[in-house]
Structure formats: structure tokens, C-alpha cells
């Protein structure tokens, strides 16, 4: 595999290697918190922060950690940063957002994306590259969350970022409940597959 430039390292997660749409990782928070765009953005910011910090530390300790116990070590590093981010969010974000993200902030610990990047990237590459990879992948996840939450908020509440889009539209509240979440992600994944197929790529 050829060496990517730092800029490519940052942007690869946005689209071509998007952790949610291409790798289908981290579904649980992606479906649970995407009822409004604000929630999606808050979750995305938390994931970017955790992923950047944990990638830096894991990259720093990658030569010291024995292979057999690397997973528990990574989990402890990630859990520490999740705790920091959780306390920061409690301190600086409005209580409604903390309320609606609920248990999904501590559950960032077991988000597969973070473990996946730690295992395939941060444990092999330099600190700078790992930090950039963490930020890029986190931003790709955020992009995906914003797309899903924009669709769900527009269809389910009739609003975008809290502003009404049309006076006559009757919101279908099923879209902000559980079935709507599964439906939107399923249709989005099928849409990306369709685009790939029509360009003659493999799914």
C-alpha cells in the first residue's frame, strides 16, 4: 500500500473509508442519538475528541505494550478519555443534550470504530499520523451522523436545526422513533451500494 500524504490521511475517512457508511461500524450510537442534528453533532464531537486522544496515546505506547494484553490496555486508555469527555460535556453543554445522549456517552468505550482504528492504525503508525487519522475518522463519523440526523429530523419533526422547513408538512413521528432509524440507515446503505454498482464497482 502506498504512503498517503497527511492531507489524504485526514480526508480518507470522510467518504471513501467512511467508518459508518463503508465499514458499517458504530451502528448503536449512530442510530440511537440521531433524532436531531444537534445531538448528532454533539456525539460526533465527543467521538472525534476521544479518538484523537486515544490514538495519540496508543501510538505512543505501541512499542511497549505486549501483543497479548494490547486489547485490555487499549480499552483502559479509551475508557479514561471517555470519562474526561463525559465530564467536560456535563460541565459545558446544555443539560438537554446530556439528557438525550444519556448512556451513549459512556458507551463510546465500546464503539467499534475507536477500537478498530486503534488496532489497525494507531498501533502501527507514528503519533502525528495516528492523531490525524483519529480526527479524520471522527469527522467522517460526524458527517454520517449529521446526514442521518438531518433526514430523521426533517421527516420526523419537520425541522432542520430547530427551524420549521414547511408550514404544511405533517411530521411523521415514526422517523424519530426506533423503526425510522433502522429504515433510514438501511436505505442510505442501499443508496451507496446502488451508486457503486452503477459505476461498475464491487459492493
Amino acid at each position: 500500500m502506498k504512503e498517503l500524504t497527511l492531507q489524504e490521511e485526514l480526508t480518507k475517512g470522510f467518504w471513501h473509508q467512511n467508518p459508518l457508511f463503508v465499514a458499517v461500524l458504530g451502528n448503536c450510537p449512530a442510530l440511537a442519538v440521531t433524532t436531531t442534528i444537534t445531538n448528532g453533532l454533539a456525539m460526533g464531537a465527543a467521538v472525534i475528541m476521544v479518538m484523537m486522544c486515544s490514538n495519540i496515546i496508543i501510538s505512543l505506547i505501541r512499542k511497549q505494550v505486549p501483543k497479548e494484553v494490547r486489547i485490555p490496555c487499549y480499552i483502559v486508555v479509551i475508557a479514561a478519555f471517555v470519562t474526561i469527555v463525559e465530564l467536560l460535556m456535563k460541565a459545558y453543554l446544555p443539560p438537554e443534550i446530556n439528557e438525550s445522549l444519556g448512556i451513549f456517552i459512556p458507551l463510546i468505550v465500546v464503539n467499534c470504530i475507536i477500537m478498530y482504528r486503534a488496532e489497525v492504525f494507531a498501533s502501527q503508525y507514528s503519533v502525528l499520523r495516528s492523531a490525524i487519522d483519529g480526527i479524520g475518522m471522527g469527522m467522517g463519523f460526524t458527517v454520517a451522523l449529521v446526514i442521518i440526523s438531518a433526514i430523521r429530523e426533517a421527516a420526523g419533526c419537520g425541522t432542520i436545526l430547530g427551524i420549521r422547513i414547511s408550514e404544511t408538512y405533517q411530521p411523521a413521528s415514526i422517523m424519530i422513533m426506533a423503526p425510522g432509524a433502522f429504515l433510514v440507515l438501511g436505505l442510505l446503505l442501499a443508496f451507496f451500494n446502488y451508486r457503486k454498482l452503477s459505476r461498475g464497482e464491487k459492493v
Binding site: 458499517v24 423503526p179 425510522g180 429504515l183 438501511g186 446503505l189 442501499a190 451500494n193
Partner: peptide
């Protein structure tokens, strides 16, 4: 995966 998600819905 897409059809699995739609069945889940």
C-alpha cells in the same frame, strides 16, 4: 446489510 436493516425496521 441494507435489507437486514430494513427487516429490523
Amino acid at each position: 446489510v441494507p435489507i437486514a436493516f430494513i427487516s429490523t425496521a
